[in-house]
Structure formats: C-alpha cells, structure tokens
Write a protein that binds this DNA or RNA. Structure first.
Length: 765
DNA sequence: AACGCATATTTGAGT
DNA sequence: AATATGCGTT
C-alpha cells in the first residue's frame, strides 16, 4: 500500500507527503489536482489516520462521490465510509442538524431552494405594499445573498452605511426591512436557504466556543478542493476550524476562478500564504491532459489577465493541431457546422461520440445544437437547465413531504394547499396568511385557529381547509409506522396527485407520471442505503439531499457514449478529446453585463481559459454573425477573446479579419446561405424558427406575402412592406433595438423597428 | 375559482 | 421564443 506514491510525479508526491502543516497546491489545468487530493487522503488513511477525523470539502456532490470511489480503490472501501467528504452545503447542513437546538431550529429544518426563497420575498414585498417593479425579487435575493455571504445578519445589514446607501441610491431603501422580515420568517418556518447553511454555521461557531472546540477536535485534517471558488462565509468556516492545528491543505487554480458572481473570492487563494503563515506552496505545472498547442494557446490567453500567481504551465504531449476558428452566418448555421464536423469525424475518423463536448456560455444556446444533432441522429446528453428535482410534479410531491415533516414550512404549504385544485383560492389563502402573521404562527397552525375568528371565509371553504390539514396530519402520523417510500406512495395516492395524471392521457402527463415513479425509486434506493448504515430519520435526510442535489450529480445509465452539451461553468474539472466552444461573440462571451468592469471581463477570460483547457486534442471556436436574441435577430461580432489567443496557435477562417473592430454591420452584406452549404434537411421538417431555409427561392413569388427574418435585411436592399410598398434600405441602426431606415418609393423615408416591420426582401433587379 | 387572452420579462453561471 | 404574470370573463 505504501507504493501508491509511485504513481505520482515529483511535485505531486511532495504535496501528498506534506501533512503536518498548512499547504497550498497550485494546480494548473490538467495537472493532476484531483489525483493529489485523492492520493493525499489515501496516504493519510494508509498511515492509520482515522477517516472520521478527515474533512474533505468539494465543490459538487459528484466530485465528492468520484473521489470517494478512487480513494476506496487505493485505501479500501471500509476506510472511506466515515470520511467527512462532500460539499460545504451538505456537510455543514449535517452539522447544523446535529446542533439545531443551539441555534433555535428544529432538527427537521427544511431547506428553501431559490424558488421558495423568491416566493417568500415576493410575499413580503406585497405585504409591505411596495412596488414590485422596483423591488424585484431577484434583485433583493441577490442583496440578501451577498449580505449572508459576508456574514451580515439583518442588524449588521442595517448598520452598514455603505450597503444601506447603495440601496437608497437604487431607490430601494427598504431592502433592509425586507431582509429582516425574510430572516425571521425563515426562522419561524424552520427553514434555511442555501446561504443560511453557511451563515448559521459561522454563527454557531462564533457564539458557541465549546461547539467550535468540539469540531476543531473532530476535524484533524482539512482538505479543500477548488479553493479559488470559496466565498467569504466558507473561508471563515475553514479558517476557524484549522486555526489551532493548521493541518489544512487547499487545492486550486486562481486562473480557474469563475464564480465571483455568487460571492467567490479569488483573494482567498491569493491571500492564503498570508492567512497561514509558513505554508508550503506546491506548484503543479505539468499539464498531462492537452497537446502543447492547446496549453500554449491557453497560456497566451490567460497572460492577458493581471492579478494572478505566476505560472509556467507546460505540456510534454505532442504539439497537436491548431485551434480552429469557424464562422457561421447565423446561430442555426453554427449548429449545423458543428454537427457536420462531429458527424464527419465520427464517420470518417471513427471518433467516439463520448469524446465530443459542445460548450456554451448560456443554457439557452443549447437548443439549436439539440435540433441539429437530432436531425443527424447523433446521440447527445445535455446538462443543466431544469434538474430532475426542479420539475413541477416532483417539487409538488416533495412539498407534501416537507410539510408533513415540518408543518411550519409555509412555502411548501402554499405550493400544495390548492394542488390538486380543492377550492382554496388566493383570497382564502391571503386571509389565512394574515391570520398567521397576526398570531405569529405558521399557516398550517392558523388553519386550526380559523373557527375562533370571523375572517369571512365561508363554511364550506373552512371545511376544505380542515380536510387538508387533517390529511397532512395523517401523512405525518403514517411516517411513524411506514417507511419513507411507502409514505411517498401514500401521499401520491391520497393527495389526489395521481388522479390528476390519470385523467390526462397526454404524453407530457405520462412523462410526469414516470418522473414521479422515478422519485419513488430514488426514495427506495436512498432508504435502503441508509438502513444499511443504520440511520433512522431517512426521510429528512432524503429531503435534504434532494434540495442540495444538482443535475450534474446524477449519473444516468446508458449515457456513456454520447456527445456532451453543457455550459462552460459546469465543464470545470472535466476533459474531452474534442471540444467545441461555441457562441464566441461579443456580448454573449464575454457576456454583456461583464463588459463595464475590468474584473468582470477578467473573470470571463478565465472562463474562456477553462473552456479551452477542457480539450485534450482538438479545440474549435465557433461564432455566428447573427443570432436570435429575445425572439428577434441581432447582428453579432466575433469575441475579443479570439484575439486574446496568440494567432500562431490559431487557424482562422478566411472571411474574417480579427484586426478590424469586428464585423461591420452596414457595409458588409450578409451572404445568403446556399442550400448545399447545409446538411441534408428533411424537407418541410423545418420549423418556422429556421428562416434561412426559405430565404432563397421564395422571393419571386408575389402572391403570398411572407416576411424575411430581420437578420437578412441589409443596406441598399430592395424590400417590400405590407402597407408602405416597395423601398430601399438606407441604413441599419443596431444600438438598442434594431431599426432600419428605409426610403419608400411612395411614402418617403421611414424608420422601422425590425422586430415589427415584417419586411420582404426582393430579388436583386 | 378557473380559464383564456394580453402583456411583461427573460438570458448569467448553480449550492 | 418561451415562460410568468395580470386582468377580465365565466
């Protein structure tokens, strides 16, 4: 067993063997970061360290699971069972459950997801009679999140001049009140949001030194993965826990810090040597993943950023091919080009589908790729978007379970009190809510008090409310006698959810039903595993697990040989032989809202760095010259990031010159795409969203007036408008909504918003 | 209370 | 484009 060190290079081995003090492992992309972490833990275990004294924090549940598996191979499965290994959120939720009483929460506290939190904020804004156009839930949510990440309780928030002033400047002076009410409501409901899990852990350790001492003693070895993505609250937890024994090892790469939008601080990793004086720094700079070309290209790109550790990443792999840049006329064509390239490589070079990844900046970009891949019959899997546990039918069923476990969970109650419809509408609910607020109880308890008050709710409605409450009580009781999966079955039956689906024979309804069955399976599986471990309260644990689970955490069977579609963010830590980074356009990547701050732009560049370094052998960058945005077409210019890569590593298309300031919108006509440029497409199978296909060939028919898409409109073009008749395009304005200035033959010059204009392009005369 | 139509908003990444 | 919200009708 002692020979596991032989699998490591010198730097990796040195990092693994250093276990008695603080250390920082700076691990470049593909340098074996996970390897160091897993081997280090295995090394500790092989040296007879008790697994229950090791705290290993990862970024995702999936990373934790995979690491556990690898450690099991190195050190034996039994050894890994008691490791404290998981995400910050799940491990500290576990601790908070143990210590719940101390901070005034029930042991069965529920976790509010973003949707629950948002709905509560909306309720509060309404109650305070504030304008929800100004007090937007999403904005308030991010203010509260920011506050909690910086350990600001409502009092701290109200006392912070800078923050309060910022709210006043934004014409939202009452955010502090909303926060205070939100905070109290969550507590009353026995609920924590994601940020609370970290905030309350901090408060617990701050206010209860004996508990802090206990956990300092439990966690003799602390390891943190992806340290560059920790936020202030996480940083403080780690720092406190490690303060005495200093046996803390953090692993990360400042060049891959991409989560500052949710409070991550690159400074945590940059300042680590100051926080833990005398720490050992290990630099892993040999990239084992990618070709020399890719590594060098990525280096040249990240060199454009300031404020980073000095790096010297290199590869001893073959030189490899250059990064190929491809241009497309539209987002739809971009998808076809990528799909065609994959198809060719698959058929001609026998590349496996699992070796391909299509990476994009935003989830919304996936649609065209899905359509194109489906038409080619190329199998793919897609990550992100709605996860299984976010689906309505699943959330509804889970809300019943939540309410049965914790009757103060008002958000769960609001979700299901009238689902399936049982005649309890908004009016009734707001009367009930008002009573609950007056009496300072949860809504569920307010139902029990309803007959003592004259709320103007008629008797039949009262009877319905009581029947609902009775049903929930019944579910709660059955939890003592039945196991979790049986309870779920029962809820599904008796709540009427199942009946809802039986009445409806549509395919959607069928698939919802299947999802519900899948949930029952998941509960079964979970409980079986928990029973094996001798754990009782498995329903509570299950509810916690699913609220902290993401789409990426689930591994589907039979998904192994497919093309991967995902955002760049979720690709972090993964690698693929062939990578397409798509949508390389200004305002998309880098995203428009990062352009006003240099720090934001640098983060986008790091994101691009992450994207490029996912590729082992071949990397493509693609961009489109026009793209559907918010339901209308807009012109795009190639991303500045393409130019950030040293041109010697690039293979550029002939039709763009990246030295000029992007594409000109007005002088360079957008060429029509010839039919034979495109893959074979089933005739008539094109949706109306594929306008380029009918752009050509229909223009000489005068009978049916069918407008062309705005992206095809160009200067000097002859066009026809349904009411103004024929005219010539003088100019196109692209700032804000796209407008075309058109000189009409009959009616003179007019400026038209292209999204309304319904113009038809005339064939050149 | 439930439904249908009109209008507003979204698209920034995820524990 | 797709979804969420709002308003009026039944």
């Amino acid at each position: 067993m002692g020979n596991i060190l032989e699998d490591l290079n010198e730097a990796q081995r040195a990092a693994v063997e250093f276990i008695e003090g603080p250390s920082l492992v700076l691990a470049g992309a593909g340098s074996g970061k996970t390897r160091v972490l897993t081997y280090k833990i295995a090394y500790l275990l092989n040296n007879k360290v008790d697994p229950a004294t090791i705290l290993a924090l990862t970024f995702t549940n999936k990373a934790a699971r995979e690491m556990k598996e690898r450690i099991a191979q190195l050190a034996g499965k039994k050894e890994t069972k008691n490791l404290w290994m998981g995400t910050f959120h799940s491990l500290f939720a576990r601790i908070l459950r143990i210590e719940a009483k101390t901070i005034g929460f029930p042991q069965s506290f529920t976790i509010y997801d973003t949707g629950d939190a948002k709905s509560l904020i909306k309720t509060i804004v309404k109650e305070l009679k504030l304008d929800d156009k100004i007090y937007k839930a999403s904005h308030i949510q991010s203010r509260i999140s920011l506050a909690k990440n910086n350990l600001l309780t409502p009092e701290g928030y109200a006392n912070n001049v800078k923050i309060v002033q910022a709210d006043v400047m934004n014409r939202m002076p009452r955010v502090q009140d909303i926060y205070a009410i939100y905070f109290n409501r969550c507590k009353k409901a026995g609920a924590m949001d994601f940020d609370d899990l970290l905030l309350y852990t901090n408060l617990l350790f701050r206010d209860h030194p004996e508990i802090l001492a206990k956990y300092r003693n439990v966690f003799q070895y602390i390891l943190v993965d992806e340290y560059q993505d920790t936020n202030m609250a996480q940083y403080l937890i780690i720092k406190k826990l490690a303060e005495v024994h200093q046996r803390i090892c953090v692993v990360g790469d400042d060049a891959q810090s991409i989560y500052s939008f949710r409070g991550a601080r690159v400074d945590n990793i940059l300042q680590y040597p100051n926080d833990f004086a005398g720490c050992k720094i290990f630099k892993l700079d040999q990239n084992y993943r990618s070709t020399q070309n890719i590594v060098k290209a990525a280096n040249s790109l990240i060199a454009k950023n300031s404020n980073q550790f000095e790096k010297n990443n290199f590869s001893s792999n073959p030189a490899g091919s250059k990064i190929t840049v491809l241009s497309a006329y539209s987002d739809i064509e971009e998808a076809y080009i990528v799909t065609n390239t994959i198809f060719e490589m698959h058929m001609r070079d026998h590349c496996e589908l699992r070796d391909f990844a299509i990476l994009y900046r935003t989830n919304a970009q996936s649609r065209h790729f899905e359509e194109a891949l489906r038409k080619r019959n190329l199998e793919y899997k897609i990550y992100g978007g709605l996860s299984f546990y976010q689906r309505k039918e699943i959330k509804d069923l889970l809300a019943y379970m939540r309410l049965a476990v914790n009757q103060n969970d008002d958000e769960a109650l609001k979700r299901v009190i009238n689902y399936p419809p049982r005649g309890i509408g908004d009016t009734t609910l707001s009367k009930l809510d008002a009573l609950a607020q007056d009496e300072n109880v949860g809504i569920f308890h307010a139902i029990g008090m309803i007959r003592n008050y004259n709320l103007g709710i008629n008797n039949s409605t009262i009877a319905r409310l009581e029947a609902f409450a009775h049903m929930i009580d019944h579910f709660r009781e059955s939890m003592h006698t039945l196991d979790a999966a049986e309870v779920v079955q029962k809820v599904l039956q008796e709540s009427g959810i199942l009946a809802e689906f039986s009445n409806d024979k549509s395919p959607e309804s069928l698939s919802r039903k299947e999802n519900l069955e899948e949930l029952i399976n998941a509960v079964n599986e979970f409980c079986a595993q928990k029973k094996e471990e001798g754990n009782e309260n498995s329903l509570i644990d299950f509810l916690q697990e699913v609220s902290l689970l993401t789409d990426q955490d689930k591994e589907e069977e039979g998904e192994f040989n497919k093309i991967t579609l995902m955002t760049i963010h979720s690709s972090k830590g993964l690698e693929f032989k062939h990578v397409f980074v798509v949508g390389m356009e200004e305002e998309l990547f880098p995203s428009a809202r990062t352009l006003d701050s240099p720090a934001g732009l640098e983060e986008e560049r790091r994101l691009f760095y992450v994207a490029v370094t996912r590729a082992r052998e071949i990397c493509f960058l693609t961009f489109a010259k026009s793209r559907g945005k918010f339901g209308q077409y807009a012109y795009c210019t190639p991303s500045r990031f393409i130019r950030d890569i040293d041109a010697v590593f690039l293979d550029l298309p002939v039709d763009i010159s990246l030295n000029t300031k992007g594409l000109s919108n007005t002088t360079e006509p957008i060429k029509r795409i010839q039919r034979n440029d495109r893959p074979v497409v089933a005739t008539g199978g094109l949706s109306k969203r594929t306008p380029l296909s009918h752009a050509k060939g229909k223009n000489d028919e005068k009978t049916n007036f069918s407008p062309d898409i705005p992206a095809l409109i160009q200067v000097n073009q002859r066009v026809e408008h349904a009411t103004f008749g024929f005219g010539t395009v003088v100019r196109i304005e692209t700032n804000g909504d796209i407008k075309a200035v058109i000189e009409f033959d009959k009616t003179g010059q007019k400026t038209l918003l292209l999204k309304f204009a319904r113009l038809r392009i005339l064939k050149d005369e």
